[in-house]
Design a protein around this nucleic acid. Structure first.
Lengths: 127, 127
DNA sequence: CCTAATCTTTCCAGTAACTGGAAGGTCAAG
DNA sequence: CTTGACCTTCCAGTTACTGGAAAGATTAGG
């Protein structure tokens, strides 16, 4: 795969994929004769993983740590499990925060009657 | 409330609260005699709301739009409902992405046996 | 084989959303 | 009335992209 194909599949701009290669977050499989970056399904999967983590508010360094859990063979499995468990808790915390956001907005949607009347209860919600 | 108290309660750095005031995302209630920013529970609630939205990957402009749903009284309720419904879908999409992230990592945690053996199945997960 | 369109490369500058630090004013306690 | 913990503005730096220029590579059509 060239960069545009992997970008399309991972739902990321080529610029971002190139940037991730530059900072060595997701390195390409290799380079073609002409110097084109080449990617396989493994890198694609990592890119999708990183996109999800980034969209969910994890920093690049946290993504690096998360990816490391899949790759770092010189770390023993108890360590991997401990770090993964900690990251899982972070993800679960984010899920709870998202749920609270959802609940607040959901309240907005369901207390509005949806017609054209401008006296929506939302306006008084915060006061 | 002064800035440090509202920052503590909202779980945001004072720097960030000041920045949100500068860009007029969450304006303080007013200023004291000496020019200190003052905040009430309303602004506190908005700050918590913004923190959650930011941590969940929404941009400042998206946060502005989300906050607008609570405040913008000159918008009719059908419009508010439509925009809120769209934002709710975005939140639900984020929840699904977080769930996929969670599932992948969860797999890592539960297939690792947790002892000191370095032959954790995670290492082969992507290959 | 030549050319035009569509890749790809690197490099450099700009943006978004903070973040740290300096220089200085304010306030409450002892 | 001073000491220490607040607060202010301003300016510079960081993170994570993002857009654009200049130039080489590849593919499809004539």
């Amino acid at each position: 795969m060239n960069i545009s194909e992997v970008s399309n599949r991972a739902q990321l701009p080529t610029k971002t994929v190139r940037y991730y290669a530059d900072i060595d977050l997701v390195a390409p499989l290799g380079r073609s004769e002409a110097g084109y970056r080449t990617y396989s399904d493994i890198e694609l999967r990592k890119l999708v993983f990183v996109r999800r983590a980034r969209e969910s508010g994890f920093s690049i360094e946290e993504c690096r740590e998360l990816l490391g859990l899949y790759e770092n063979a010189d770390r023993n499995s108890a360590d991997v499990k401990a770090i993964a468990a900690r990251k899982l808790e972070e993800i679960e915390a984010k899920q709870r925060e998202l749920q609270m956001l959802h609940d607040e907005l959901s309240y907005v949607v369901h207390t509005c009657n949806g017609d054209d009347r401008p006296n929506c209860p939302i306006i008084d919600y915060l006061s």
